[in-house]
């Protein structure tokens, strides 16, 4: 039994099948990266797991708690959302709150921690991402990379059982990508169970334990980075890797 088990996840937008019975196992402390062409449901997969999208079918088991993803029960939804926390492509910091307040918000309002305790935790989380010198800056005072680091601190402070990262570096200027990747690597090293959607293939190769190749709503290939990049056994995967110049085999070098 895996720490996290996703079973039979289905999602349609109208008649368009986005996710087609996706099964996924994640072990505790593992970093699983989802790669694949755009429009194949990578982000939707993540967003179904915290019900930002309503899937048609599917269950998720976290530790020994099983949730029906199409539940209508508000309490169950709330509990499910508290299992995970999400880092967004567009950072999505609350604009009328400064860095410290952004991190404290979930701790105070959702976890109901006391003022002192929440502040201590928030300060610690912000220190981890190297943002201690920007505690009272509002999102509009921060660069994209800094905003994303605060967003990561906000997610980590909630001590989620599953960290969801939806293309966390895609909206950043190239020179700011590095600082965020370093932060994510730290989070991964610290043992946060992570599901990561990204196009940073070199980063995936060095940080992920397992890679899932998603196409047309199906898991087409999965394996350790070495297998995926080194010995891809699936034609579609080979084609995808060739297109993004990540294939190591000579015959596919362009």
């Amino acid at each position: 039994m895996s720490y996290i088990e996703i079973r039979g996840l289905c999602k349609k937008f109208g008649d368009n099948v986005i996710l087609d019975h996706v099964d996924l196992d994640i072990e505790k402390g593992e970093v699983v990266a989802i790669i694949g062409p755009s429009g194949t449901g990578k982000s939707t997969l993540l967003r179904c797991l915290n019900l930002l999208e309503k899937p048609e079918a599917g269950t998720i088991k976290v530790d020994d708690r099983t949730y029906d993803l199409k539940t209508k029960d508000r309490r169950v939804k709330q509990n499910l959302r508290r299992e995970s926390s999400m880092v967004f492509q567009q950072f999505n910091l609350i604009k009328n709150k400064n860095s410290l307040e952004n991190v404290e918000e979930g701790l105070r309002i959702v976890k109901k921690l006391g003022k002192e305790e929440a502040r201590k935790k928030a300060l610690g989380a912000l220190e981890h991402v190297g943002m201690s010198d920007r505690l009272y800056h509002y999102p509009k005072h921060l660069s994209g990379g800094q905003q994303q680091r605060v967003a990561i601190a906000r997610s980590l402070a909630m001590e989620p059982n599953l960290l969801l990262m939806d293309e966390p570096t895609s909206a950043l200027d190239p020179e700011l990508v590095g600082e965020v990747l370093v932060t994510i690597r730290e989070a991964a090293k610290a043992g946060n169970t992570t599901l990561l959607v990204t196009h940073e293939m070199n980063f995936v190769r060095s940080v992920a334990n397992k890679i899932i190749f998603l196409e047309n709503g199906k898991v087409v290939a999965s394996g350790a980075p070495k297998e995926i990049f080194g010995y891809p056994n699936n034609d579609r995967l080979k084609e995808f890797l060739a297109k993004i110049n990540m294939l190591e085999g000579a015959e596919y070098n362009i």
Partner: peptide, 24 residues
């Protein structure tokens, strides 16, 4: 996006309205 972020933190609809939406 902020509303989504607040949802994923586990905030309730009313908390989001009062703490995120209305102040802005």
């Amino acid at each position: 996006g902020q509303i989504e972020a607040a949802k994923t933190l586990g905030m309730t609809g009313f908390q989001i309205l009062r703490r995120v939406i209305l102040p802005q």
